[in-house]
Amino acid sequence: MTLPSTLKPSPPLVSFHHNLRSLSPSRLSTAVSTSLPTLNVFSTLDVNTATDTLSSTLTTCLDNICPISSRPACTTPPSPWLSDDLREHQTDLRAAERRWWKSKDSADLGKYQFLLATFSDNFKSAKNSYYQNKINSTTDTRSLFRTFNTLLCPPPPPPDTSLTPDVFASFFTNKVTSISNTFSAPYSVKHLSPVCNSSVFMFSPLTDTEVSKLLLSNHPTTCSLDPIPSHLLQAISPSILPALTHLINTSLLTGTFPTTFKQARVTPLLKKPALNPTQIEYYRPVLSSHSWQKHLKGQFSIKSLPISHRTSCWMTISQALKVDTPPRLPCCLSLSR
């Protein structure tokens, strides 16, 4: 005697998204301009408070105008070569298959086999035509390599459900610790006296024009940690330029990196598609950081030093970096706090 199973079927996967196709950038820009504090109030905030205020305002305005909706998650990506005629043919094929399973008639079997052979030929022909047209029309080398990579290297199988985020975190932490332990303790080195007597310098503040150029020149790549997608941020940039300029200048002048930007998302990926996905040592961590970090990168002029000190200091920096450029310093030197 066997008891019936009491296990409940797993619920269907659901994905959440914003319907950005129906979103008007001008409406979002107006909402952000209205919700943000005035520049006089915003300029009194510290770096972390200003960053959180700007991020929460952008997220709230996007959620109010374009609420998050749910839909069943697609387990397999859609086939771009599957036209409406092929979908209709596929529907007829499934109906013929169900009809044959019920009747077990040889006539229904013959019709089902005929539809199956026809659909298979049309499907292969449509797929070949799609990739031929895509390869012939591609002029970018990167896009062409990506197309061949999808054909020659299929996506890896999903990882084992026993590999939880805590397991990955512990594995990668222990791996870093074991690698660090293999190095010997560093030798104590006496600090050399600096060549430059003056160590006072400051970055020249950025203008709205420079921040706008920096914002629009970056490729609109989006991370899941971003308050809004990067292409929307570029579209509404005029409404947030004063706040973003104050945020960048305050971060550079105070040497404080926003705490929000120190977070990152780590995704474990298989090193090779043919490896066993159940073995945790075959994974490598891939980090995706906040895309706003790009807006804090660049080079800014030194304008607080006299000409004599500026020249001597820059000669020392140029010799260390082995570059012959105007007196500029990488902004990452001030973001150590």
Rank of each mutant, 00 (worst) to 15 (best):
L3C: 07
Y187K: 05
Y112W: 13
S55R: 07
L192E: 14
T260K: 15
S304Y: 10
C74N: 11
P158I: 02
R21D: 07
R337V: 11
P67K: 12
T311A: 11
S198W: 01
A117C: 03
A185M: 13
S224P: 11
K272G: 01
L335G: 06
P194K: 10
C332K: 05
T53I: 00
S301F: 12
T325N: 02
N19Q: 03
R99Q: 12
P78A: 02
T278M: 02
K104Y: 04
L45K: 06
F257Y: 15
L215I: 15
P227F: 05
Q293I: 14
A320L: 12
G298R: 10
H290M: 02
A320G: 12
A169M: 06
P158M: 05
A107Y: 09
D92F: 09
T75S: 12
P326L: 07
N276P: 10
C223W: 04
T147M: 14
D52F: 06
T138G: 06
N197A: 13
N276A: 05
S15V: 05
D140C: 12
I236Q: 09
N181Q: 13
N19D: 06
P154I: 05
Y283Q: 02
D226A: 09
S318I: 01
S251I: 04
L247P: 04
P11G: 04
S35R: 14
P227I: 03
T267N: 04
V211D: 09
S239G: 07
L163I: 03
T91V: 07
S79R: 15
F114C: 05
T118C: 05
C153N: 15
V32N: 09
H17I: 01
T91A: 11
S184E: 00
P330V: 03
S10E: 01
C74M: 12
A126Q: 08
L270Y: 07
D324C: 11
D84V: 10
P330M: 07
R265I: 14
S239Y: 13
S288T: 11
S55F: 15
S288K: 11
A126I: 01
S188E: 02
W101N: 13
T141E: 06
T6S: 07
F300T: 15
D324R: 14
L20P: 07
S217T: 06
P159Q: 02
S204F: 03
S198N: 14
L13Y: 04
A185T: 10
H89K: 15
A320H: 14
A107H: 11
S334C: 08
I65R: 07
T260L: 15
L214H: 08
S162T: 12
C66I: 05
F172E: 00
S129I: 00
T259M: 03
V286W: 01
R142D: 01
W292E: 10
K271E: 08
D63V: 08
V176H: 10
H191I: 09
S137Q: 08
P268F: 08
F203W: 10
K190Q: 12
H191V: 08
D52Q: 07
H309V: 09
P220V: 02
G255N: 07
D105G: 00
N197M: 12
P4C: 00
F171S: 03
L233S: 11
L305Q: 15
R265Y: 05
T222Y: 04
F168I: 01
